[in-house]
Amino acid sequence: MEAEANLDGNAKLDFREARILCADASSQGLDILGQMLIGFGIQQITRVQTGDEFKKCLARTKFDLILLEGGLNGNGYELVNWLRRSNLEPNRYAPIIVLSGHTPRAQVEQARDCGASFVVVKPISATTLLARVIWVGKNSRLFVEADAYVGPDRRFKNEGVPAGQIGRRRSDLSGEVGEAVDPNMSQSEIDSLLKPQKMAL
């Protein structure tokens, strides 16, 4: 989930009404996040330091964005998974950015499957954080609910139906190439499609 920070400095942001939930066991981490968010123009920031507070807050207030430290409660990914599978609407659909240091081996699969919108690796700069927030905001992805996964669609590109399988979507095309329905193209027709151009080396 890593993407280059590519920000348009002239673009506008309006976070005056935004409600953000920041969850991190470290007050230092919360201070750093808070300073960045205040700089972005965010005025309503709720800080929590435990998993219990996180859950209680989500039951009370609607949030536009959730920033969660991956190590909260020993495993912040479990909290994301809990929220995505909860009945706390609309918070269960809210964008969640997980801020992570090194993800221990034992949690790598959980990190992939927890349903976060983005995982950002520390140390986090203001530029990186804002780029990810904008990316998450602009790239609204379909929300998928399945037995093994609940969260934003993790597929970033569509490479078609896997070989040897039948597509399950209405828009999926068959992997089989059928009989030709039109006569073969002539060489001049093919040439006209390619439009070769002269060039000098």
């Binding site: 673009a11 942001l13 009404e17 905001g137």
Partner: peptide, 24 residues
Amino acid sequence: IRRVTTSLEKMVRAHEGVRVSDAL
């Protein structure tokens, strides 16, 4: 599969507010 629209999208596509460079 649900199509979810978030309020965050409106905020990051705003016509008014602070410029990204100023926010940074």
